[in-house]
Design a protein around this nucleic acid. Structure first.
Lengths: 359, 359
DNA sequence: ATAATCTATTCAAACGTTTGAAATCAAGTT
DNA sequence: AACTTGATTTCAAACGTTTGAATAGATTAT
């Protein structure tokens, strides 16, 4: 009793139970300004009844009426990539004080899902959308629909400012240079490199930073020791790629004392491959990665890597989104800004001076 | 032009543009049965206009009217625990063909967030809720509200059937026994054990299985070699716990040839701790874990572990949820079932016969 | 010629809220 | 006796959609 067909308790259930109008009940329970004028006793009675019946306002009805959904769509390209998780946490954290909620969807690297979820986010009237980098993103024609419906977008992990989209990303060039200089400072001169797949936008600038830093240090790469991961790699396949390339490095006969891998999982694959061949890390060969994901931290030896401040990037994206929302409410014009955050070198035990443990 | 204050294109925008009523437009765009009677030419015109204006139906208005939200709330206790991610993927996969969407929230092990998000899920009128195990869950009084509002629940990762909640979990007892028997079959007799925290429901049955299998094999644990993780450990702290206990094992002076850790991150911590003390894994000591999370797979040596079929568990939970929804639509009574799935031993290189590499 | 059937479209009410405007009533002021 | 004031509560419309019932016109069957 006290419940309608839908199974949910509504304002009118409470109104009936209290012999009051729906308006009064709404005013009290939504703590509208008018509730100052509602008699204390009435207020108490309404609140007690609401609690007793287990009332929770219907977000659908409320949002429809208020024309605000308090929702930000978050489109992650692949939640099983440990890269995504901290970014999402950062977004949630930023959203929290603003009383917004994230509507998180996981495209699982699939074009079809990406479109489907994008549409869903639009239908659920997210007030804004944060996209965590995905190559698929560029191609979708839903982008046009987003604009037609005036929904602001922020992207994390790549630069789409030329498409007039506010972008948050790490300075890959600086990161590449940092890790290269680290190896140089340890005294490595013969370094194998595994570049990222063409399709990933991080690949080019990271490689650029590496090359520049190497040139500055007077280091030349042996072409037998430069590898490139294939496209469409999921997070597991970059591990396998690293392992495979490790074997090829050894087979090539070229001398090397360190391996600079595109990302941490690749680096972990290299460690596996070299270890299987009997080498000791870092005694016989140093291995460094990029990203600082959880497995890099908990593996032994810990992988020296470049930390992207992922959580902070998520928070920054949220902040920018909230700004954009305020501006669009005030009908101000929006500018698509570019926000480049600086990465940080995290030295662990997978890197050491060449040719010696204790040295 | 063609857009209202809210910024979103509505049916009436399209109706106006086509000189038709909102009803007709709705009938066509929602592909209602009546659309058979709408002239082909009209239909085409409406669809073209909708596409041109970038129309997407308002899920809020639609759900309000249809009294169906096509939403299942998914409450994960901590997305940064690698345990959660595959379960969530499995849920999404199960939901997909049923045309449902998940509303995923991350409680980050915080009671406050848990309540907040639970309330949010209720307000967003999720038709059902899947909870990924959390101790907080038991305490919340929102559980009563869920029942008052007739929202079915399924829980993954623990048994709450006595609370009349359908539960999906792994057979921890069997898993504990499996991993213990594995060490026994390799010939280990002196085994250090790190038990899970009291607060985690997995701890007791897992320990029970271990003890039973040990007893069957005639193995007794040295009390100096039995440790227990503290409560409230986040995923990172179980790593630190493992590392710490590894040192204590060595300091205790007791002899041991293998360590059986509560979960994979603890095992990785043990590997770190033992390695730092100069031991080689698995030559000097075997280390085994539980869960089969990503880091256990990509570390070197790979951690021998018990795989929980997490993805499958997520899919099963979804299936049970969809069943429950059908039953509640048909007004059938619901039974709270218990579904125990079997874990699987995954042998990697962190375990070997005691006291030797090649043997 | 009337009724029945079919086609193509529209009306109007409803979903559960919110909110500006209005109503009611008591008490105080002119 | 009429008027203001203030406190408390209610009316009614709106948000964007769906849908049972109604309409108008054309065709066919009796």
């Amino acid at each position: 009793m006290g419940q309608r067909e839908s199974g949910h308790v509504t304002l009118s259930d409470i109104a009936r139970a209290c012999h009051l109008s729906v308006s009064t009940v709404s005013i009290v329970l939504s703590e509208a300004p008018l509730s100052r004028h509602v008699a204390e006793s009435t207020r108490k009675r309404i609140q007690a009844t609401a609690r007793r019946l287990g009332y929770h306002p219907d977000a659908y009805a409320r949002s429809l009426r208020r024309r605000r959904t308090q929702t930000i769509g978050v489109l992650a390209y692949d939640m099983s990539d440990p890269f995504c998780v901290p970014v999402v946490s950062g977004i949630d954290e930023g959203l929290q004080p603003a009383q917004y909620f994230s509507l998180l969807v996981n495209a699982q690297m699939q074009r079809r899902l990406f479109d489907k979820y994008f549409r869903m986010i639009l239908e659920r009237r997210a007030e804004g959308v944060i996209v965590i980098a995905s190559w698929v993103f560029e191609e979708t024609d839903l982008l046009a629909d987003i604009e037609k419906n005036h929904v602001p977008i922020v992207i994390v992990g790549r630069d789409l400012t030329q498409r007039r989209i506010t972008s948050v990303l790490v300075d890959n060039r600086a990161g590449g240079a940092l890790v290269m200089r680290h190896l140089d400072s340890l005294g490595h001169r013969h370094i194998a490199v595994i570049r990222g797949p063409d399709e990933m936008f991080d690949s080019a600038p990271r490689w650029e930073g590496i090359r520049q830093a190497a040139a500055d240090a007077g280091i030349r790469f042996d072409s037998r020791l430069v590898f490139q991961l294939p496209n469409l790699s999921d997070s597991k396949s970059s591990f396998e790629g690293g392992r495979q390339f490790a074997k090829e490095m050894l087979a090539s006969g070229a001398e090397f004392t360190a391996v600079l891998a595109f990302d941490d999982l690749t680096a972990l694959g290299v460690v596996r491959g070299l270890t299987e061949a009997g080498l000791r890390i870092p005694k016989d060969c140093s291995v460094v990665g990029f990203d600082d994901v959880l497995p890099a931290d908990v593996a032994t030896p810990g992988i020296t890597t470049i930390r992207q401040p992922l959580r902070e990037m998520g928070m920054l994206a949220t902040e920018l989104m909230l700004q954009a929302l305020q501006q669009s409410q005030a009908n101000e014009t929006q500018e698509a800004g570019l926000y480049v955050v600086q990465p940080e070198l995290v030295v662990r035990t997978s890197s050491a001076a060449p040719g010696g443990g204790g040295e």
